[in-house]
């Protein structure tokens, strides 16, 4: 690695001021950046903005209506957060299933989002939890719903002078699940993942939100399947049909991790398994 200059701000104002320089690269856990540097996918960065000591970005705050997750929260911290275990089990499951202990102790949710991979495991849960991102620069801040954040693989609407400064989800109970399929349980990037958030009205589905990971250029919502499930009483026939519809909503490609045809099939299988578990657990 070449000569690098590091900036080590201790508060958010300093960090945003430093980021006003477009050549400054933010590093949170470094688990994506350092791999890219090692594999020579990235040029050595001239200036590195270390977020480690910016406390404002590293906390969870809870109000009656919203849970605000700081982007520097690690996967391990998300996995162990009592409030998220209660209100965002999809996100907790995703964080707990990623990488290895060592990776989860460093990988942050903000880095996972900013990295923009369609296989980023925290992203499908954030879609179905209707997360809103706060993007800040030295000049001010704006909010973007997570579904509007990604424009392609590794491409987002984040400006070079901006940081993700908060991830906000509604503070409400929900049913649902996150499931993923990878070559092995640990240390493998998802071939397919499915996150679901389902609201029941007595025995009928009031609304279902379904997001699919790693089967399109970005994480996508399966809106046709959602529409199909609305108002239905869930039984095996309905689940089987939903699993069939969702396969056609996936638009996967063949790549080093899997084949498109297998991914399509597996999206259906994961949705089926998940819906079966939701209905048997009430």
């Amino acid at each position: 690695m070449n000569a690098v200059e590091t900036l080590n701000p201790t508060n958010l104002a300093q960090a945003l001021k430093a980021k006003a320089n477009k050549n400054v690269v933010a590093v949170a856990g470094g688990t994506d950046l350092l791999v890219r540097l090692h594999d020579r996918i990235t040029q050595p960065w001239p200036k590195l903005l270390i977020l480690e000591n910016v406390k404002e970005l590293h906390k969870i705050t809870v109000t009656k209506t919203a849970i605000t997750i700081g982007p520097s929260m690690t996967f391990s911290e998300i996995e162990n957060s009592a409030i998220l275990r209660k209100k965002a089990l999809q996100l907790v499951t995703a964080a707990a299933s990623a990488g290895s202990v060592q990776i989860r102790n460093r990988a942050t949710i903000g880095g996972n989002i900013a990295n923009g991979s369609p296989a980023g495991d925290t992203i499908p849960p954030l879609y179905v939890l209707e997360a809103i991102l706060e993007l800040s620069s030295a000049k001010g801040k704006r909010t973007v719903p997570i579904e509007k954040f990604f424009t392609g693989p590794g491409k987002t609407v984040l400006k070079p002078t901006e940081l993700i400064t908060a991830i906000k989800i509604p503070n409400r109970s929900n049913h649902g699940f996150f499931m993923r399929l990878a070559t092995r349980k640990a240390l493998a990037i998802s071939k397919v993942s499915v996150a679901v958030n389902i609201i029941m009205n007595k025995s009928k589905v009031e609304s279902a939100k379904i997001a699919l990971g790693a089967v399109a250029p970005t994480v996508i919502r399966a809106t046709l399947t959602e529409e199909y499930l609305r108002g239905k009483e869930i039984n095996q026939a309905i689940i089987d049909e939903a699993a069939r519809i969702v396969q056609d909503e996936a638009r996967p490609i063949d790549d080093i991790r899997s084949l498109a045809i297998y991914r399509k099939e597996m999206v259906g299988v994961l949705l089926k398994r998940g819906l079966e578990s939701v209905t048997t657990n009430g």
Binding site: T6, N8, G30, T31, L34, I50, N53, V101, N105, R106
Partner: peptide, 15 residues
């Protein structure tokens, strides 16, 4: 906490 030291930048260990 166990971490991979190959994925930590040296200046990140401040404090």
């Amino acid at each position: 906490k166990p971490v991979n030291s190959c994925l930590v930048m040296a200046p990140q260990i401040e404090n």
